[in-house]
Every structure is written in structure tokens, then in C-alpha cells.
């Protein structure tokens, strides 16, 4: 039954990924990505990694992709128009893709034995994962979180609305116009 489930959801994941690339309407592409993530979560589940499977659903499908869909809805994004078929893309892109695939296949063939992965062979339980993250890899974990924080603050800073010039505010008309510093003028 495990094998049957694996093939069903592996097919679903690949089909979703192909559909994601083929679809022209952004909303369909985003939803195919959600389907891919759901199928991947089931594959994790088949390997006994319950925690990772549900975190995948919670974080990727439930939070990140919702924001994608949200933005698509807000902008009411229309189907993409076909770009001019660039010659550079054909000359460099296709051989590069082939080279990448060959390299990837070679890596898979040499680095992994061809015996199937068995359940419980890798760290998968919530407890082991916590131990690994907060003991063995504590520093990388914390550094990553700081990195996220920096990204977050940067995004807020970029998106934040500039303060209205003081002159526009009725109460500030008389007091602040005289005290404007050169730096503030530059910002305006």
C-alpha cells in the first residue's frame, strides 16, 4: 500500500509542477504549487516524518502560498502574454538545462546507494529534530533567524508609507516649517 501511495502522490507532485509551468493564469499556477506542496507533505509522511510533513503544510501551503494568492487577488493579475521567443534563451538555455540534468543525475547515481529509503532511517521524530536544531545546529539556527529578521525589517522599511510633509498637517503648519533641516528637505 505504501508503494501505491508513493506513486499516486509522486505523480501528483510532478503533474502539479508541470502544470505550474504550463499555466498562463497566475492563480492556476499558484494553486498548482499548493497541490505540489500537499503531495510532498504526503511523501514526507510516507517516510515517517510527521513533523516535517505538517510543518510543510502549515508554513508553505497554509501561510506563504496564501500570501501569494492574496497578492494575485489584490492585483487581479491577468494571464501572462507570451514573451518574444529570445534566441539567447534557446542557444544557452537548452544546453545549460541538459548539462544541469546530467550533472544532477550523476550526483544522484554516485552519492546515494540504490537501496530504497526505509522508514525511521533518518532523523524524523519531533524530539530528535528539536535536539538536532537546538543543540548540534544552534548557531546556524539562530543566525538564520536573525537573517529573517533583517529581511522582515527591510521589507517593512521599504513598504512603509513616507510621513506626510509637515506643511500638509493643519497643526504643524506654523511651527515646523521654519525648523526644517537640509536633511529633511533632501528626503522630500
Amino acid at each position: 500500500m505504501q508503494v501505491a501511495l508513493f506513486f499516486i502522490f509522486a505523480t501528483l507532485a510532478v503533474a502539479g509542477a508541470v502544470n505550474l509551468l504550463v499555466q498562463r493564469a497566475p492563480i492556476n499556477a499558484a494553486l498548482s504549487l499548493v497541490a505540489v506542496m500537499g503531495a510532498l507533505a504526503v511523501l514526507y509522511l510516507l517516510l515517517g516524518a510527521e513533523f516535517i510533513a505538517f510543518v510543510q503544510i502549515l508554513v508553505y501551503a497554509g501561510a506563504i502560498m496564501v500570501l501569494f494568492v492574496f497578492v494575485i487577488m489584490l492585483l487581479n493579475a491577468q494571464p501572462d502574454e507570451a514573451s518574444h521567443r529570445s534566441r539567447v534563451a534557446r542557444i544557452i538555455g537548452v544546453p545549460a538545462l541538459v548539462a544541469l540534468l546530467v550533472e544532477f543525475a550523476g550526483f544522484l547515481a554516485t552519492q546515494f546507494s540504490d537501496s530504497p529509503v526505509r522508514m525511521g532511517e533518518y532523523i524524523s521524530s519531533t524530539e530528535d529534530l528539536g535536539m538536532a536544531l537546538f543543540h548540534q545546529y544552534l548557531l546556524p539556527f539562530e543566525v538564520t533567524s536573525v537573517l529573517f529578521l533583517v529581511g522582515l525589517i527591510g521589507a517593512v522599511l521599504l513598504a512603509a508609507r513616507r510621513e506626510d510633509p509637515p506643511a500638509a498637517m493643519p497643526t504643524a503648519v506654523s511651527s515646523s516649517s521654519a525648523k526644517t533641516t537640509p536633511a529633511e528637505l533632501v528626503i522630500r
Partner: peptide
């Protein structure tokens, strides 16, 4: 009976947003 039941519930309810979002859109 799964080991991460609470996480499962949180994950599934977080997907519930799609029902609302897609309905409106």
C-alpha cells in the same frame, strides 16, 4: 491517533483560508 495531532489540526485549519479566499475571488 497520530503523534503530532495538534500540528495536524493547525495545518488543516490554516488550509481552510483557501476556501474563503477562492470563494471571494
Amino acid at each position: 491517533d497520530i503523534n503530532v495531532g495538534l500540528l495536524f489540526i493547525l495545518g488543516v485549519t490554516s488550509l481552510g483560508v483557501y476556501g474563503i479566499v477562492l470563494a471571494g475571488w
